[in-house]
């Protein structure tokens, strides 16, 4: 795959052109276009049912659009809308599971990033909704990828904590596309794309 396309002086890391997705009779995405630069945090906002989750699934290659094309510079890591945790694995193990064996020790970094260090030996059934969401986020960030597609990463997480975590995520210097409904978090990102 070649380098990301250059547009108006900014190299684009994600480009989606003319994406149309239909579930039965319902048109979810109608010739949607998106360009995300290779640096910084992009916040994708919009009311429920606008197709944010569908768009992320298309970008991650998990759903095939009726029309349109997607170009990515490499592997996209998707944080699913659901936590999808392994009920029998501890918090630490869930992160170690996605790291290469030689890097298992790095789990502590992602636990600290998402403020889960104290909960490292707990299992998902012992976590609150917000903690489970942070664990799913930590696991996605532990994967190596060219771009991170994060579907509602702070659902159920209190605002102050979400702001702290978002600041740490920025320091990772990875291209990230986040969805959400909280204007305060959108303001902390580099750009906001509104899905109407």
């Amino acid at each position: 795959m070649g380098p990301p396309p250059v547009e108006e002086g900014i190299r684009k890391v994600i480009r989606a052109r003319d994406i149309t997705v239909r579930y039965g009779e319902k048109l979810v995405l109608d010739h949607f276009n998106l360009s995300v630069p290779e640096t910084g945090l992009t916040f994708l906002s919009g009311a429920s049912g606008r197709g944010k989750t569908t768009l992320l699934r298309v970008l991650a290659g998990l759903s095939t659009p009726e029309s349109g094309e997607v170009s990515l510079p490499g592997r996209a890591v998707l944080l699913f809308q659901e936590d999808r945790l392994f009920p029998w694995r501890t918090v630490r193990q869930q992160i170690e599971d996605v790291l290469p064996k030689a890097e298992a020790g790095r789990a502590a970094e992602f636990l600290a990033l998402t403020e889960l260090t104290e909960a490292a030996e707990l299992r998902p059934a012992q976590l609150s909704g917000g903690m489970a969401r942070r664990l799913a986020l930590a696991r996605a960030l532990a994967l190596s990828g060219a771009v991170y597609l994060l579907d509602e990463p702070f659902a159920g997480v209190d605002l102050a904590r979400a702001e702290r975590i978002l600041a740490r995520m920025r320091s990772l210097s990875r291209p990230m596309l986040l969805t959400g409904h909280v204007p305060e978090l959108a303001r902390l990102c580099d750009r906001v794309v509104e899905m109407l």
């Binding site: 991650a60 699913f80 999808r84 694995r89 599971d97």
Partner: peptide, 20 residues
């Protein structure tokens, strides 16, 4: 099926998908 989709998306490989 949700965990299976996750295993595919996160490139677990056969052995890890079997184990987890």
């Amino acid at each position: 099926p949700l965990l299976l989709e996750l295993a595919g998306a996160y490139r677990f490989g056969r052995a890890k998908t079997l184990r987890l």
